[in-house]
Amino acid sequence: MCMSRHYDVDAVRREFPAVERMVYLDSGFQTPLARPVKAAIELFLREGIETAGPKSVWLDRVERTRAKVARLLGVTADEIAFTKNTSESMNIAANALPLQAGDNVLMIHGDHPNNAYAFLNLQRKGVEIRFIPMTDVVDAESFAPFIDERTRAISMSHVTFHAGHRFDIESIGAMCASEKLYFVVDVMQAIGVVPVDAKAIGASFIGSGSHKGLLVPQGLGLLYWDKSLAELEPAYLAAASLAEIPDDLIARPDKMAPSPAARRFELGNFNLPAVHALGASLDMIEEIGVQNIQNHCFDLGDHLIARLDELGVRLVGPRDRQHRAPHIYVIALPASDWLGHFEENGVRVSPERDGIRVSLGMFNTVTDIDRLIDVVRKRGLGRPSAAA
């Protein structure tokens, strides 16, 4: 039996057939497909085959899923837009900010490249991008010395993909509010595992994809927009983005005001199969509770760190729960030497900058962690212990 103090992990594991075939510790790359998610996609396909597409029904489900996303983030549905992925969300945010030549944006050196490139692309408009050092602890005090009279925004990840840093975005959001800075947050590696309260963060934009903690195949992204910031307008426009969509679909230059809702950032047709999948996955996540998922992953992480300590193997990144993500851990084993060994022994992990990344999901167990440790020891690293 797979025990947890927080929910019935055995029941959850039954919804993920792949985890019975391998030790799956790679949710930071892509989560396996869950049965309810598969069923939602199959429903969409069946309806398309049998009825050629009940579009009004599908669009109603889009809006219901939008409301579920809003509930997850603690916002209203009209503050949520659907995008293709995190990269598109970050680019939408970067280009919506009213930045001028000579303004500067602060970011963290070594953060996800697709967040950085969205803003680095603004250099062609004369916007300066400044990078602060990445340390295990990044908070408001980390950014404060770099702010000057031309600083307009801060953009950063909540959780880093490469070592599991969990930054103090609440203190940074509060500082942005006091300094009147825009605040853009990439929550791709947090959402679905770490609670995200957009209003508590004080974010102008929050962007994410959905194929990690949200359990959906690739190709769907999310964007939260603080609707009080009406000056943040899209860099592009389509009929679906307008406040008034013309009934006759004839474009009129005198009626181009963007929608008062986050729909202003959408470009027409949706990834309908993925939206169906997201509706199902959000039901799963809501039933378990993000806080419970986080606590379960923290417990597994504590066990992983203890077992690594027994082996004398170093953890890359923060160890303290206050500063680490509950579900992302990088082991200081060279990926070029170790990745094949894990694959040969049925353990799915990812190579990262400084080693092997172990990323946990709602379905993982202590047994998975112990299996990982056994595979490390199998290669002659470390010494046997009573916990083995």
Rank of each mutant, 00 (worst) to 15 (best):
L381Y: 04
D60Y: 13
A238P: 00
H327I: 11
T31M: 10
H211P: 04
W225K: 14
L33I: 13
T51R: 14
S56A: 15
R71T: 06
N364S: 02
A230F: 05
D248K: 15
P273G: 02
T31R: 14
N121C: 05
E266F: 07
H112N: 12
L222G: 03
R166H: 12
Q218C: 03
I285Y: 08
R324C: 03
R263V: 02
E179G: 02
I49N: 07
A81G: 07
I206L: 10
I92V: 14
D60W: 10
A18L: 15
G209Q: 02
L282S: 06
A203F: 13
A386T: 11
I147N: 04
H211G: 00
T83N: 04
Q189I: 06
G207V: 08
L33T: 12
N292D: 14
L267N: 04
K199I: 11
V159L: 10
E79G: 06
F29T: 12
F205H: 13
F363N: 11
G268P: 07
G209E: 05
E286M: 09
D148V: 04
S350Q: 12
D139M: 06
F205A: 09
S281E: 08
A81E: 05
T76L: 07
G355V: 13
G74L: 02
H165A: 07
F270P: 01
P246C: 14
I293G: 12
R379E: 08
A70W: 00
E286V: 04
C176N: 08
F146K: 03
N292E: 13
T83P: 02
S178A: 14
I41W: 10
Y224G: 07
I331Q: 10
E244C: 03
G312R: 13
L242M: 06
L72F: 12
R166C: 12
A274K: 09
V187F: 10
I172S: 14
P145Q: 00
K378P: 05
Y24K: 08
E20S: 07
F146I: 00
V330R: 11
L229S: 08
R314W: 06
P258Q: 01
V313L: 11
T365C: 12
I80V: 02
M256A: 01
